[in-house]
Amino acid sequence: MSEPVLRVRGLRKQYPKVLAVDHLDLDVAAGEVFGLLGPNGAGKTTTLEIIEGLTAQDAGEIAIFGMDWKRHGKEIRSRIGVQLQSTSLFNKITPREALDLYGSYYPKRRSTKDLLDLVQLNEKADAYHITLSGGQQQRLAVALALINDPELVFLDEPTTGLDPQARRSLWDVIHHMKEEGRTVILTTHYMEEAEALCDRLAIMDRGRILTSGSPMELVRELELPSVVEFTFDGKAPDASDFARKLNQAVESRGDTWEIPTQDPKSLLPCLLEFAEMEKVPYKQVHVRRASLEDVFLHRTGRSLRE
């Protein structure tokens, strides 16, 4: 790997009641889409804000394009694009005005028209910000992050709170950033989003990175890459008795039993037979590949969505 676009070593941030970032190391290479995946409160946003120069760290070093904030703050700011978790603009500014205004802060800028095209806000270009939908406001925030033609883009939970369609259209914008050769660092707590967008990702919990790699690598690292699911009508019954008799881990979650396995082909027949014998009132059986959700569950013992 050549000189990374972002290099973080030993980052630490203590808030009065919580250690938000706990000795964190990170390397992001040029041109990759890198994701920080983790539940709410994992420290993703704090980490990002320290890297963006908004919050001071207690310890640790950050190099962006090989430069540090203290000496090259202005240069770094003009080469990065930032979408904050909640981008607050004036209620009565229009997307066109906002892009023109923020563009005027940078030495190099993309045209307002191109960006409005990119995020499909042409029709709303002259509507007041307060009248835009959540998805439109978020697309404007992303467009603002691109106004200076940045080499490195930070997106903090770009799709949280959006409906599936709005989320897809933002994914397209992010794919486009990658095609243009930008490095993108994003946070999310949606695993399908991480899977769809990220070349590499780090799973974060309680201020620490538990594991990192490409989505495929992370799933492959699991010892049990497949999951058999029994779904029930309503809440799934207690699985502990079944698990003990089967001598196999069974997770009961919602209306589903999940049975992680290395070899579904040989497990499935005897599993079905045993379930018949025990009169388990299941409705359906599925076999699926383990997902990032399972990786997270395996690493933390907790679900991402909890």
Partner: peptide, 13 residues
């Protein structure tokens, strides 16, 4: 409170 300053703080303005 609403973070308008923060959005400005990440620009070179």
């Amino acid at each position: 409170e609403k973070g308008k300053f923060r959005r400005l703080a990440v620009t070179p303005l």
